[in-house]
Design a protein around this nucleic acid. Sequence first.
DNA 1: ATGCCGTACCGTGTACGA
Length: 262
Amino acid sequence: MRMATWNINSIRARHDRVLAWLERSDVDVLALQETKIDDARFPVESFEKLGYRVAHHGTNQWNGVAVASRIGLEDVQIGVPGLPEYDQAAEARSIGAVCGGVRVWSLYVPNGRAVDDPHYHYKLHWLAVLRDYAEKQLANEPHLQMVLCGDFNIAPTDDDIWSVEYYQGSTHVTGPERQAFTSVVDAGFTDVVRPFHPGPGVYTYWDYTRLSFQKRRGMRIDFALASPALAARVTGAQIDREERKGKGPSDHAPVIVEFRDA
DNA sequence: ATGCCGTACCGTGTACGA
């Protein structure tokens, strides 16, 4: 089983690139973030033509997440249970589905905007709820096959950013955010890409401005965190930085993980 | 300190991103 997670920064702006990538990447499951579209307008047919079924959760031009799968799409869950709202509105930041026996979560963790901004506290609360959910699932089922993948909007260590000085005082690198990320890992969900691509200098996101990609100035903020039983099946992983090149790329690269059969 | 670039919105500017 081959799966990927990718923040595409708009399915409308990225439609042709996403479908072309899907066609050549040979992934069975693709978790998407930032589709930036509502359910009614998501181009499900384009994915179906390539043999994928899609579960999408989007309410407006912000956020939006999806799971596309050619190996089954069962027990779709719109949102991790108990996640907080912002301004009395549930944002479309998580969707889960069982694909080929694995519960795949596509997550778009809140950005946080600025340290101590209300959105920053919302981000930390959101991550705490995610951690509690994941921990509980694992406690209920020791052989749980589950992966939490997506854009976590956190660079867990200084190796995951191109410059400590540049991000001084910014979100994504603060102690509380890194602790929130670590607590998900400590709940039993392992970063299964890192062993195959040790840092420093390995990134999944590069700012559109300032020629960041060309200058290799990025951040590693997109992850696949696997439950113990699923992590034991990992055979390889890639970060497809080629996809960040060319005309009209997303600012994030696809992250791919391969699992042996259960 | 800001723009830098990119996306989407009843849009000729504003909000958001990380």
